[in-house]
Design a protein around this nucleic acid. Structure first.
Lengths: 335, 335
DNA sequence: ACTTGGCACTCTCTGGAGCAGAGTGCCAGC
DNA sequence: GCTGGCACTCTGCTCCAGAGAGTGCCAAGT
């Protein structure tokens, strides 16, 4: 069905269309990509490719443009990642060096990614599954409110506020905090949840202890719904002229943490590309998502990626995303 | 120079232009706003208004559109805030009720504001100047790294990580934390900075103490550069057809915390409007900013506002921003 | 069985002409 | 100081024609 040459034609069309954003015709194709056959031959190939659903024409007697399926084939079988230039490599490593804490790493990464790909970058905070509990605190803010604080070995802080009976004495709070802290220190979150449930049932457990245990359990159980940070939103303005209509839903989607988490949540592989309608979220069906996991498996594993127009330069975007993911992973492993 | 009728004409032109986004001519104006004079008279008035710089024409023999100066006059002298509908009031109060902590309040507020104004909302975290220090913690994460944590009475948590000599013993860290905590508890940030500087110079101050004191001082001194949260970015897509060119710089500006802080930093009054070129940031000179302080003076004071097209409905936007600011302020005062 | 050149056909795009409509500026008169 | 009238200007729409790019198909060549 699809011989070598037809694939070459598809590759050439995609390359050309990505570069010029204009439908590609048979004659121009032969000229620009010295395929050693006549335009008529190419036309036949194009007709086949269109029949198979890899190409489409905006209107009769216009050139062809790739369909989502065409891009898919391209990404799966035709694209060779474009290696990064030394300048880009340098930019990546200097951009990251000097990052102080996890927040800083994530912030820098999202900027970096947006800059090198000229698209919208999204970076998920690492989910640290082997992180252990380093610290627990209960801080009384008002007579009837306290802050429950949880710090893990990776420096991630989560908190929640609880209501206390006004008559609670400070030493009760203190005692509860000390007791719980001793009970769960250096445990992983799953271990800790078990320990906490035991603690609440124990002898001598008072109301305050119960309240705090409850709050902590909630904090721990809460999906490691790690936040997602977005950057380079200004780049949607550059996605293309024809993109203006589809812009609003995209911006909307980018603001929804839930959408972004789901988007990144499905990424498991080294490098995942989701093209146009392959995206579940309707607002993003005119975009493509290139994402990759980063960090260390089972340690600080998370996902990052970019959102761009379907008509994007896949080889270069994919290479950039992968490179950034690797650099950041290495950086996290060292720090 | 500007008699009653000329002002009425300006008001009518702005009203009409805001509604229809089209240059408005003398005839249409007389018809739609039953000004009891002839179009010719209006034309004379328009000519005067244009001479004075309140109006301009996109091209000869087209209708007039307001200039930034025209909007300014309108906002200062002609606009009467449009009272909110009961539905809107209800929306505001239900939207906020049920907010758990400060984070939640801010997140909800930004969504709310974006929704009621259909523009881009920005909300600054309250700067709590009378907040006192409630808690300090030093948590060792690795042999050579520790997390320094600062919690204020308002529940704001700031943190930084410090490097420790590997040979530091845990009890040294503990001792430093306890000593510092005792020394600064219930102090405002300015008091604390003074106390800390004394502490470092004291007898018996060791290296670890010095490191922690240094980190804390930095945390405290750091401008209460409270974060700014942005929402409703998708609304820029609706700012108008002609806006597309100016969109990228706007999106860019909205991503820069520094820009936003400066933008909101200049707001001191109850309600501030900054129109077009009145904005310092060039990227925002095709937009108007309506902002207001909220919270309690000298307690949890901060700023919120919206960014919209110059051609916005000022009376309604201003009313909405003020209403939201007041509701949130009241909500904070209660909680 | 592919490939190719040729040919008729389709569709968009561009530019110019013509015309209607909206709006202006100015002036003389009330 | 307001008004009606008038000439003028500019945009926007429509129509038309021609150029250009591209296609599909067919018959002939290798």
């Amino acid at each position: 069905m699809l011989d070598e040459r037809k694939l070459a034609v598809l590759r050439a069309i995609i390359t050309d269309y990505v570069e010029n954003s204009e439908p590609v015709g048979s004659k121009a194709l032969v000229e620009r990509y010295h395929l050693d056959v006549s335009p008529a031959t190419i036309r036949n190939d194009m007709a086949t490719l269109e029949e198979e659903g890899y190409l489409t024409q905006p209107h009769t007697s216009a050139g062809r443009i790739p369909t989502d399926k065409g891009y898919r084939l391209f990404v799966d079988r035709l694209a060779t990642l474009k290696p990064l230039s030394p300048a880009e490599r340098r930019a990546i490593s200097t951009f990251l060096s000097g990052a102080a804490d996890l927040d800083d790493v994530v912030t820098r990464t999202v900027r970096l990614l947006a800059q090198v790909t000229q698209q919208v970058a999204i970076v998920q905070y690492p989910v640290v599954s082997t992180a252990v509990i380093r610290h627990i605190d209960v801080i009384r803010l008002h007579p009837d409110r306290a802050l429950v604080l949880l710090v893990t070995s990776t420096g991630r802080i989560t908190q929640t506020s609880v209501e206390l009976p006004v008559e609670t004495r400070d030493d009760q709070v203190e005692a509860a905090a000390v007791r719980i802290a001793a009970g769960v220190r250096n445990m992983t979150s799953t271990q800790a949840v078990r320990a906490l449930s035991g603690m609440a049932a124990e002898e001598g457990a008072d109301l305050v202890l119960g309240i705090v245990v409850h709050a902590l359990t909630a904090l721990l159980a809460a999906d490691p719904t790690t936040r997602v940070v977005v950057g380079g939103v200004q780049n949607v303005a550059r996605f293309g002229e024809d993109f203006h209509t589809a812009m609003e839903p995209v911006l909307e989607a980018l603001e929804e943490q839930v959408v972004l988490l789901r988007l990144l949540g499905e990424v498991r592989d080294d490098l995942t590309v989701r093209i146009g309608h392959e995206n579940e979220h309707v607002g993003l069906q005119s975009t493509s998502v290139v994402a990759s996991g980063y960090g260390m498996p089972d340690d600080a594993w998370a996902t990052l990626g970019v959102v761009g127009p379907t008509r994007m330069n896949y080889p270069s975007t994919m290479a950039s995303v992968r490179a950034v993911a690797r650099y950041v992973g290495r950086f996290l492993a060292e720090g």
